[in-house]
Amino acid sequence: MPDTPAAPDVAGLRALFLSCTLKRSPEVSNTEGLAARSMDIMRDQGVEVELVRVVDHDVASGVQPDMTEHGWEVDDWPAIQEKVLAADILVVCSPIWLGEKSSICTQVVERLYASSAELNEWGQSVYYGRVGGCLVTGNEDGVKHVSMSVLYALQHIGYTIPPQADAGWIGEVGPGPSYLDEGSGGPENDFTRRNTGFMTWNLLDLASVLRAGGGFPARGNRRDT
């Protein structure tokens, strides 16, 4: 068997996990329980990792970068957006409700989209050169549906999506135990653990390749040409 491609150096990358749970802190989030596994892998490799629970912040609804300029008194999204743009890796984490991503996750996608017209120094969408992934939990069907929706949105606004860039856990289709519930089997589930590992390593490796190459080639994808 031929040697596999050399593993890139991922130390120093920055990753942001946006938790789209509907629960405000300090309530336990099952989705963040799954995210913790991915974050642990990244931290072990020297990656700077941060998680933001979006529902803890006053994020306005809308599709403009700063909604205080459009009638809202408070909008915490611009501060979160700064973290988004400082990260090489973005992982959107959502629970499933009625087979769909959470309302907070929809809001996050809308607010990310609001800045997609901004350009980087090469005239590309400001999200070019970054990689995206998705983590999903619930006790009803919908992991693949939610992942398709989120990953489509991320690539549409400029993120690069590596192979197998999503993972999830639903256990026995509900109502049933959630990921972190005692006896759920979620944290020990081989399939979920494997796919979470695949997603994490693929995000790290692709982000490192893009970093080493100085971003995504600006040829045929510039907004100003």
Rank of each mutant, 00 (worst) to 15 (best):
G33T: 05
A35H: 05
G12A: 01
F17T: 11
P8C: 07
S38A: 15
E50H: 01
S29G: 04
T31H: 05
A15I: 03
D40G: 12
D3W: 00
D40Q: 13
E27Q: 15
G12N: 06
T31S: 12
G33R: 04
K23G: 14
L18D: 14
R24S: 13
A36S: 09
P5H: 00
S38R: 06
V10S: 05
C20K: 15
N30C: 11
V28P: 10
S25T: 15
K23F: 11
G12F: 08
S19T: 13
D44C: 12
A6V: 02
L18T: 12
R14A: 15
N30T: 11
L34S: 03
E50V: 13
M39I: 14
M39E: 09
A35M: 08
S19W: 08
L51C: 09
E48Y: 06
C20M: 12
L18Y: 10
L51Y: 02
E32I: 01
T4W: 01
P5W: 00
I41G: 06
I41T: 12
N30D: 13
M1R: 13
L34M: 08
A36F: 05
L51A: 14
A6L: 00
L16P: 01
E32G: 09
A15H: 09
D3K: 01
F17C: 09
G46N: 15
V49D: 03
P2S: 11
E27A: 15
P26W: 10
G46Y: 12
L13Y: 11
V10W: 04
I41F: 07
A15Q: 11
D3N: 01
